[in-house]
Design a protein around this nucleic acid. Structure first.
Length: 854
DNA sequence: CCTTCGTCTATTTTT
DNA sequence: TAGACGAAGG
């Protein structure tokens, strides 16, 4: 890099650090979950609605048909106007499905006389929901507000809160808590401990995963027990039953319950079911390929024919449109079942299928790469995306020495795009497979003063102090929520230890009362030290005071402020000398700001409600929420997703670079996309290598990643990557090799050095060799810019293996990366069976084999 | 009862 | 690397 440029960069970096550093840090740590809801409010005010580029311009309620169909291709048009039966829209990446969905809703409302309140649109994230609402509002005006546009989970919460009165047998009241994963894990850990289950053998996490699967299949605990085919199954079923029992006792549900219980409600209460079938005449589901069985059944319940009413005219069943792409199914680990979309025509007889194959997003080069990669998946309905934008720049590839160099290269290239090509930072995104990979990027970006934002990762709402504060709120809103109460019992430290907690627990169990009640009756609890008794009593006082505040109608932000102050949580952190605690204070302050914004927006919505004629049912729903500021706030927080936190691009600012996992990237698009960590073992992930199905899912993930790019796609990998201490030498991702070579312009490639794959910059004079087999090889210049990279460690193979055991990862000069599956013999006869993946399993004598233990 | 220190182990993706 | 957990000392 020329000195002048470097100096200029330094100056700019300093400036940007000044301008952004603080901002970047706090913002990365504290996303505002209500950004999405802000968009909705903007739309209501007729300002800042979010039209897609060149589409959906502002318009009035008297929109005429021609206008709604303008700019649509044949199949899109058909999807918009089709009525009279179920429709499946198979929408390839970038084929304009959001446009189809929004235009269809607008068309239904303004041309078909469909009442907005009878539209139910389900999206994958709150952000997508907010955007859809805004775009429909831009087309048909504010009457669109009566629509239900939400995620599966929010829609179910809404139905449950409204209808639980009809179903006392569920044992839930309307103010139920929603447990997230961490809460659920905590509860399951308690269950397993009390059942004397060995936590080593059955980690709460994995037991919970099975419970989750069962719920996604709509299997209850009794049924799970009946189906149990082994002692193992039985153990899980019993844990499931007890876990559920305690959830109900705490007046709480987990994520999976939201769906399962709603389905059960609709199945067992015909009156409720009929009510919603009558109400929702038009049902639209986005990302249908990611639905699980429970969600599928929910849709079925909602869209099946109505019971005939004697003497009344027959009401036709609700109309259903689902939109999806089986090639973008990337959530099967969470129970998503591609068969839902593949079997749609079978499940909904008379269904029409419409294919959207024209891509409006990417260049043909990018699409060719995507098609080539996804073409390697077996059992895939043939479809080929094509672009009207022919050609396009070649994909740029880069092999770095280490993950730090990779990050450095990415940062330099982003800078170049910004300086030379006039790209805004917000036009660029960096994707990786796992959250842990964000770190090197953050380090380099901070150093260079590149403004960035990490989406996901250690999330704001998962931070300890934030969870503590929220637990207070939940314990206030739902006093029988034992998990929350116990979490905060001794936070901040108030001298209530494990002994006291156990005594309270035993008392609660004996008396059959909630933990909170045991706290209130602490004087009766046997085995309490007087000292502890006093502390527990003070805690009870505190909680009663805070609940009193809510009863007086205090809004969420005030309750939160009182919690932080009265509990001493804030004081404890402020007094701490641990520098981390200062960040915690900032996070709590940020949480208060979030609550304030929530309250302010709720207020605006209320004002709107006064001005706009809203239909009765909308008012019903509002009445349910209106008096419960705290409850609604908690619910919103529980249901925010990572991708909800992505800021809308502001056309005037240079914006920030977005860093996120490939999963989070679904549904988004950027001019410039960096696909990083393209290494076998990283992406595709190690754990997926063994299974065909999982590998296919990884490939779909790569397809999703590639198709996020509008104009430029970059792929990169590191020859050496350190993961938990030790360096890993990962071979090139197989997905790289599935991209036709002529589409990639390698700016830097790897060479093979005595069997070691290293990137070009690591060559050390003597033993260099031409580019070998294990990396992408091409006509690229061997090495350029002379930035003085040093390989992380020498390529020497110095250590003779002393011992190996199953599970160790090893490197062999010709077979490559492998995993030890078994060992045999000892001393000079020691042998190891090593699985080299595509190279097969080899039995190697340790005395001779040039193995390197990693 | 709380703190501290050491050891251990886990690292996929998330509504 | 870090975060979580357990043992032991204050």
């Amino acid at each position: 890099m020329a000195p002048v440029v470097r100096r200029a960069r330094r100056a700019r970096a300093e400036e940007q650090v000044r301008r952004y550093d603080c901002w970047v840090m706090t913002d990365a740590a504290s996303p505002n979950p209500f950004a999405a809801f802000g968009a909705r409010l903007d739309a209501l005010h007729g300002a800042g609605a979010v039209p897609a580029p060149g589409v959906d311009g502002p318009s009035g309620p008297d929109e005429d048909e021609a206008r709604l169909l303008e700019g649509l291709n044949g199949p899109q048009r058909e999807a918009v106007v089709h009525t009279g039966g179920p429709v499946l829209v198979v929408a390839g990446a970038g084929s304009g499905k959001t446009r189809v969905l929004t235009r269809r809703i607008a068309h239904l409302i303004s041309r078909c006389g469909v009442h907005p309140g009878s539209v139910l649109a389900i999206t994958f994230t709150n952000k997508a929901a907010a955007e859809m609402r805004a775009r429909v509002t831009a087309l048909v005006g504010r009457r669109a507000r009566a629509m239900w546009v939400s995620t599966f989970h929010s829609a179910c919460v809404r139905i449950l809160r409204a209808e639980l009165g009809e179903a006392p047998e569920f044992g839930l009241r309307r103010n139920f808590s929603i447990y997230d994963d961490a809460d659920a894990r905590r509860l399951m850990a308690l269950v397993l401990r009390d059942e004397d289950v060995d936590a080593k053998k059955f980690p709460p996490r994995s037991v919970l995963a099975r419970v989750s699967n069962a719920k996604n299949e709509l299997t209850g605990p009794a049924e799970a027990l009946a189906d149990a085919a082994s002692g193992n199954d039985e153990l899980h079923a019993r844990a499931y039953a007890e876990y559920d029992r305690r959830l109900r006792a705490a007046n709480a549900v987990d994520f999976d319950d939201l769906i399962m219980l709603t389905v059960r409600l609709l199945r067992t209460h015909p009156d409720v079911r009929e009510k919603y079938r009558r109400r929702f005449r038009q049902v639209l589901v986005d990302e249908y390929q990611d639905t699980n069985h429970a969600q599928y059944m929910l849709i079925r319940e909602l869209c099946s024919p109505l019971d005939p009413v004697p003497g009344a005219p027959a009401v036709p069943p609700p109309e259903l449109m689902v939109v999806g792409d089986s090639d973008q199914s990337i959530y099967s680990f969470r129970g998503a079942d591609v068969r839902n979309i593949l079997d749609f025509e079978k499940d909904f007889p008379g269904a029409r299928t419409i294919l959207l194959e024209q891509n409006y997003r990417s260049t043909q080069t990018i699409l060719s790469a995507a098609n080539a990669v996804i073409g390697n998946n077996p059992d895939r309905p043939a479809k080929k995306l094509w672009s009207s934008v022919s050609g396009g720049e070649r994909i740029i590839g880069y092999v770095s020495d280490t993950e730090h160099d990779e990050a450095r290269w990415v940062a330099d290239e982003i800078d170049r795009l910004h300086d030379e090509e006039g790209c805004k930072y917000s036009d660029t995104a960096v994707f990786y497979r796992t959250n842990a990979q964000s770190r090197p990027f953050e380090e380099v970006f901070i150093r260079l003063g590149l403004p960035y934002r990490v989406v996901g990762g250690v999330r704001f709402y998962e931070r300890r102090e934030v969870r503590d504060a929220l637990s207070y709120l939940r314990a206030i809103a739902n006093p029988v929520d034992d998990v929350s109460v116990r979490r905060i019992l001794n936070v901040p430290k108030r001298g209530i230890g494990a002994r006291a907690e156990a005594a309270l627990e035993v008392f609660a169990a004996d008396e059959g009362i909630a933990f909170t009640e045991a706290v209130d009756r602490v004087d009766e609890v046997p085995g309490m030290a007087t000292r502890s008794t006093r502390q527990v009593r003070a805690f009870g006082e505190l909680m009663r005071g805070l609940r009193g505040l809510v009863e007086q109608g205090a809004p969420a932000d005030q309750v939160l402020a009182a919690v932080l102050k009265d509990s001493g949580l804030l004081d404890e952190l402020k007094a701490s000398k641990d520098p981390q605690d200062q960040t915690r204070v900032e996070n709590l302050v940020e949480l208060v700001a979030v609550a304030q914004e929530f309250v302010a927006q709720a207020h605006v919505v209320d004002l709107e409600a006064d001005q706009v004629a809203v239909d009765d049912e909308e008012l019903d729903a509002r009445a349910l929420e209106g008096d419960d500021s705290l409850g609604v706030f908690l619910e919103r927080i529980a249901l925010v997703a990572d991708s909800d936190q992505i800021p809308d691009a502001d056309p005037d600012s240079p914006g920030v670079v977005t860093l996120m996992t490939l999963h989070t990237a679904k549904g988004l698009e950027f001019d410039n996309v960096f696909l990083t960590g393209m290494e076998d073992g990283v992406f595709p992930h190690m754990r997926a290598l063994a299974s065909k199905d999982e590998l296919a899912e990884e490939r779909r993930l790569s397809y999703v990643g590639i198709t996020r790019a509008r104009r430029r796609l970059y792929v990169s990998r590191a020859a050496v990557r350190s993961a938990w201490g030790a360096p890993q030498y990962n071979p090139a991702s197989r997905f790289l090799e599935e991209i036709p070579a002529e589409l990639i312009d390698w700016q830097r490639t790897a060479v093979e050095l005595d069997g070691w794959t290293l990137s070009a910059g690591a060559r050390t004079g003597a033993s260099r060799r031409a580019a070998g087999a294990s990396g992408p090889r091409d006509d690229a210049p061997a090495f350029g810019s002379g930035r003085g990279h040093m390989p992380a460690s020498g390529a020497g193979r110095d250590s003779r293996i002393v011992s190996l055991e199953a599970g160790d990862r090893v490197l062999h000069p010709s077979f490559g990366l492998g995993t030890v599956v078994a060992t045999s013999g000892s001393g000079d006869n020691a042998k190891a069976d090593v699985d080299f993946g595509s190279g097969g399993v080899k039995r190697l004598a340790l005395r001779f084999a040039p193995l390197e233990k990693l």
